Amino acid sequence: MPEITSRRGLLFGTAAVSAGALLTACTSNEPSKEKSDETRPAADDKPGKHVTIGFAGPQADHGWLNAINENAKDRARTYSDVTMEVTEGSNDTAAQIGQIETLINKKVDVIVVLPADGKALTQVGLKAMRAGIPVVNLDRVFNTPQAYRCWVGGDNYGMGFNAGQYIGEQLKGRKNARVVELAGIDNLELTRQRTQGFDDALKNYPNIRKVARQSADFTVESGQSKMAQLLQAQSHFDALWNHDDDQGVGALRAIDQAGRDEFLMVGGAGSLAAMQQIKQGKGVLRATVLYPPTMAASAIDLARALGQGKGIGGLAETEIPTSITLYSAVVDKHNVDQYMPTGFK
């Protein structure tokens, strides 16, 4: 999952504004021949100057990362005035630097990049900007804002805070409530931010105590093994927050194998499978907190606007902003139908 800056820009919900104003595309792992009205450019957003966008995305070794790539490609297809040069997805820093240098040499109009490592790719971002090619930095942030024209990404602290607040509201009438946390990879800043947000939210509920925390690796296998350890160590608790819906698949397997159902579970990121389970209302999973991969579709919108010298419809500014932070909405049975189209596989 992505690393994130503490920088806070404009706040946009996951259902953000219209095509010229960053309407996000529905997530699909299979390109659809017939796009819904939500995925088409707005009717008044007429084709303009042709823009070639270079896209350097991640290796799709995780459901969320695959959704990033698909959102970008699907969004570009909705524009008759956009051509996208797509590099082979890579989580190797050296390989991705080489791919971006190739895009620079091809003189694309704009580059959209989700860096394998923001710090390590800062210099190639600077190289593109100095070559006169605007960079849209997606999620994992470069070390300096000089390396990008606009950053767009998720809110890890807000994700943790909203998860904690949701759990707090569900348990606020329960005395001596106990919660546990299945975190992501501890050496990532995003994991620390999610945990900090969660802990800060729980401070508002003095009846709740976090009794255990285990870190996993954002994989099904790690989710299952680490959740099994939590279940063995804690004979009873009232709520679980799991940072990632992919590792949550394994966590739910461990929960089923242990025959435990005395607690509610809140997931993270917003996978389609998680939303389907929430809608069914069976089992412990009651909600998931979004980290929307639709940010990649918004990045394409931004890149097109940059290439055409446009601002964002609905805002007074004639230039696009330098930073956009997406909102981490909580999805439960009450609003799951609204967010189901954004769920990733």
Rank of each mutant, 00 (worst) to 15 (best):
V180R: 05
Q196E: 04
S80A: 14
V284K: 12
R178K: 15
P2A: 14
T318A: 14
V180Q: 01
I185F: 10
E169V: 00
P134S: 09
A56P: 08
G223Q: 03
L326V: 08
V113C: 10
L315P: 02
I100N: 00
I185V: 12
A60G: 04
N187H: 11
Q99N: 15
T144K: 08
L272I: 02
G20L: 06
K49N: 06
V82I: 15
K35Y: 13
K333F: 05
A25F: 13
M295S: 12
G197K: 03
G168R: 08
G9C: 00
A25T: 10
F218D: 04
D238L: 03
C150I: 14
F218L: 13
P341I: 04
F198M: 04
H62A: 12
P31W: 07
G158H: 07
G125E: 09
G343F: 04
R286F: 01
K119R: 14
D92I: 11
L252C: 06
P341V: 06
I185E: 12
C26S: 13
N162M: 04
G168V: 02
Q308M: 11
P341Y: 10
I97N: 09
P47A: 11
R7L: 13
E38Q: 14
L126K: 11
G168M: 07
D61A: 12
V17P: 05
A19H: 13
S215P: 10
Q338I: 09
F218A: 00
V86F: 10
T122E: 02
P145C: 07
T27M: 00
L306W: 04
K49M: 04
L315I: 01
S328T: 08
P134K: 03
R8Q: 14
F55A: 08
T288R: 02
R174A: 05
V289H: 05
A95T: 15
L126P: 05
G63F: 00
G63H: 01
W64Y: 13
L231T: 06
I53M: 06
I167C: 04
A183T: 00
I97K: 09
A15H: 13
G270S: 03
D301R: 02
L138P: 04
A274Y: 06
Q99Y: 03
D37Y: 12
R304W: 08
M227T: 15
I68C: 14
D109R: 03
N207D: 12
F12N: 01
F142A: 08
N69G: 11
S323W: 12
A67G: 10
I208G: 04
